[in-house]
Amino acid sequence: MIIQLKLGTANNDYGEGLMMVQVSLTNLQKGERGKVSAIDAGKHATKRLYEIGFNTSAHVTVIKNDAGPVVVSINGNKVALGRGLAHKVMLAKE
């Protein structure tokens, strides 16, 4: 498994010190939680993700991540994201 690590400078929104480890949503296992930090997808997809709750610092819990789209719980709502797209959602692991 490739773990994509990105070093981002945390700004005051996150308030978690100077460095933050970002992982892609596809790298989170079932049951793991993260906080949305960046979305690196196309314009449409990014906007759609914002709209359905993947805004900055939204909490995401992975429900299923094996084959097929990744299923997450966000605000108590179940959403499936295709793997390609899920890969572009970066989170700060919690």
Partner: peptide
């Protein structure tokens, strides 16, 4: 070209 992203809510 590739098919568009997949986002689907899974309602109860």
């Amino acid at each position: 070209g590739e098919s568009s992203y997949f986002i689907m809510e899974l309602p109860p």
